[in-house]
Amino acid sequence: MPKVWDWDLAGQALPLLLQGFLVTLAATVVASVVAIILGLVLAMLRRTRFAAVRAPVRAFVEFVRSTPVMVQLFAVYVVFPGLSPFTIGVTVLGIHYATYMSEVYRAGIDGVPKGQWEAATALSLPRGRTWRAVILPQAVRNVLPALGNYVISMFKDTPFLAVITVHEMVFQATTFGGDHFKYLEVFTMAAAIFLIASYPTSLLVRRLEKRLGH
């Protein structure tokens, strides 16, 4: 009968988990960048004058955000066998969250008062300049906490990348657990690491929310 909690085993696993955690962090950062940029692009495409662009973009957004990211990962993984799992993982996760973020941006853009557009017109500011200097800075400021929450949420979704063999923390935990026929230590530690990383971050986002007056 083995001990319930084996400190030696935990000690052995920790470096592996931390190594995996670095991959988790890297995936979160890259996927966030993809989502934050692509989300804005999608939001702006959904506002163009051209219905021929708006409709397919809308359909794409609806479909992607209504279907499981895990299945999306499988699907892209098998369709593009040449790409590295990490590349596929961060791209799919990034696109998935971009569809959420596009809605946030859209609400943020709609939340900029009409008077701001009118003032820009009255000053003859060109359209591009109006977006860059007037509308987007205000819209993005409004949605920062929401974007922050999505990044945290994405962080907690990175274990899905394990299903396409990205060596992030949960992949390492599963492998180690399988090798030693003991999962308690690795999964408990993985959960703890997630909590330690995500809780303070969400407190930060909450403070940001308060400071921006939400």
Partner: peptide, 22 residues
């Protein structure tokens, strides 16, 4: 209407004045 899924468990635009008006 199709309501968007939201992994943070918040309505979209989290606390925005204009959020959800559409």
């Amino acid at each position: 209407r199709m309501r968007p899924a939201d992994p943070t468990g918040k309505s979209l635009g989290a606390g925005l004045a204009g959020a959800g008006t559409e």
